[in-house]
Amino acid sequence: MNTENNISQELFETIEGYLMGTLSESEKAQFESQLQADPILQQQVSDVKTMLSGIEGAILKDRMEVFHEEIESNANSIPEPIKKPRRTLYYGLGFAASLALFAMLYFGPFSENANKSLYDTYFEPDPGLPTTMGSTSDFEFYDAMVDYKKGDFNAAISKWETLPNGTKGDTLTYFLGVAHLANTNETKAIEYLAPLSQQPNPAFAKETQYYLGLAYLKKNDTVNAKRALEASGTPGALKILAELNQ
């Protein structure tokens, strides 16, 4: 952009009209023939064009931030395992934390500590199902769900494990897996969740992969953890994957 090529208001408005397509046919034809013969005018048109697309680009950038925030807040309204406050600390430590993480990665891909700490940061048991206990046939299942929601995973597991296979379809298997994981028994969790994840159309498909990924993470099996988290694809799973990638 050249300082000497100052643009008068009149000229500016003609160029603007030309670029925005608001000139009449005759004005346009006249302007174009002028333009062909005048390199300074060509430069001025190009400068104005850059400015106008800069204005639009800057406003689009603002809008994109708003669009993006909406995606994030929509994602948060889906029941997704809630982050523990510890993660804020992670971010708070900022650079130091990433340096530490980097150092850990440098001295051996995903040391046990790094995986455990990721697990601790992200694991929150599934909030559970609403316990209305409307139909009596499901009474035992929901009775155990009350224990699960109270955090008494041992009680929930022992009640659920006495129910016949296939009660509530995949739902029982899924909650047994999550309850075992919450009860710090990741091996048992995998026994329930891994076969469930292989089924063609399980209920809670994404959630099953998510908790399976977390169980593998706790077992320090990064390869399987990544595979399950990728298959899950939930925002929570992607966040953990992203940290595994860093």
């Binding site: 689009l60 909406e70 992607l238 994957l241 992203a242 990638n245």
Partner: peptide, 28 residues
């Protein structure tokens, strides 16, 4: 610059890109 259209296009295509980048060593 139809804002509803821009928004829809933006929001509906982000996840796919996010999945691609995260699966390929990227961060959120």
């Amino acid at each position: 610059n139809d804002e509803m259209v821009l928004k829809k296009l933006y929001q509906e295509n982000f996840r796919k890109v996010e999945v691609h980048i995260i699966k390929n060593k990227g961060s959120v």
